[in-house]
Write a protein that binds this DNA or RNA. Structure first.
Lengths: 191, 191
DNA sequence: AATCTGATTTTATGGACATCGAATTATATA
DNA sequence: TATATAATTCGATGTCCATAAAATCAGATT
């Protein structure tokens, strides 16, 4: 369902007078003058609201005798609101695209000619930058501390801080033999 | 559920930006700055909308690190919209009271000192007036045409028209023996 | 055809609200 | 405690919209 279409539907229902009209029509079909009396509104006002409700396909009209009867489109209404309740989903692709765009923007603003200009203070941005730095290491290979420094020094002056942050984020592992780049665990796939 | 409360809820959802916020929060909890980037809105604007959503109890917030995370109140949202879909009912008493008030107003405006001043052109009003006139006849008893005229003449000059209208509305029945007031059929209870 | 009545459209007006930038507040890190 | 940063509030602005009176339209009855 169209996003704007849903907004239009809700805008239509989000009015005291129109909601009262809908509720009245839920019980039985009615014509303008009667609605006008019941709701204590001018007939022109009721007509105005009915027009909007009709444009949103919430009500429809037919003539009988002197009057123009208005009826509720129950199916349409129920269906639309059900969609609203269970909507929420359906954005995964779009969301991933936006996430990637954001990631790229962060990278662009902290890297210059392949070099890191600063380490972001914000956790999320910092994480992204560190992930980029971590890609310099071959997965599986074990590096000595000296080798790690050689990899990092071309992209940032303060190699010590950068190396510590990488370890802190779990992007670089270490033990007695040296450093290596661990495979991303299942828990880290989401972020 | 309060009528105005429901209007407030719908008003809150009936906005493009807020709806996009809700949809984004449906996937995961987010903080203001991120929402601001994703929706291409100023942080103050996002904050403004989140405040409204929080007032309507659609979202709630908690702090983590630097950020204020916002989360969707799924239960509340689902429940409210379900109520909206299945609302419609619950007005019977109120409606009958209004219907009776309307009926009394019609009677007051067309009867003067127990006499009919005119027969309404509008179907609905005409029906009400004729129902009142029909009460002059005892149910079950058969009247001659002369007797019918005697009953009606005190309340309206044009007895012929009045009698014809009563028969036309089914409030007076006739055959070879004369006229009588029929018991209301099941189909006529509604109107 | 003339007229009565209900419905709609037009027009005017007052109020609500989304948006953003600037200033302020609150909180976490150093 | 000082500072950086995210969040909120404030003030201003332009747009949208609900409401109703008056004019017009439509349809049915006589």
């Amino acid at each position: 369902m169209g996003e704007d279409e849903l907004v239009a539907l809700l805008k239509c229902l989000a009015d005291r007078s129109r909601l009262r009209i809908v509720r009245a029509l839920a019980a039985e079909d009615l014509y303008v003058e009667l609605l006008s009396e019941r709701l204590a509104l001018a007939p022109s006002t009721v007509s105005f609201h009915l027009r909007k409700l009709a444009e949103a396909r919430i009500v429809s009209s037919y003539r009988t005798q002197y009057y123009v009867m208005y009826a509720l489109n129950r199916a349409k209404l129920d269906h639309n609101l059900l969609v609203l309740v269970s909507a929420s989903a359906g954005d995964e692709g779009e969301q991933e695209r936006r996430e990637e765009a954001y990631r790229q923007r962060v990278i662009d603003s902290f890297f210059e000619y392949g070099c890191l200009t600063a380490i972001p203070r914000q956790r999320k941005k910092k994480r992204i930058v560190l992930e980029v730095a971590a890609e310099r290491f071959e997965p599986g290979r074990v590096y000595s501390e000296r080798e790690v420094n050689d990899v990092l020094s071309p992209i940032y002056d303060d190699v010590c801080t950068l190396r510590r942050d990488l370890v802190g984020e779990g992007l670089l592992a270490r033990d007695a033999r040296g450093y290596w780049r661990p495979a991303p665990g299942p828990g880290e796939l989401a972020s």
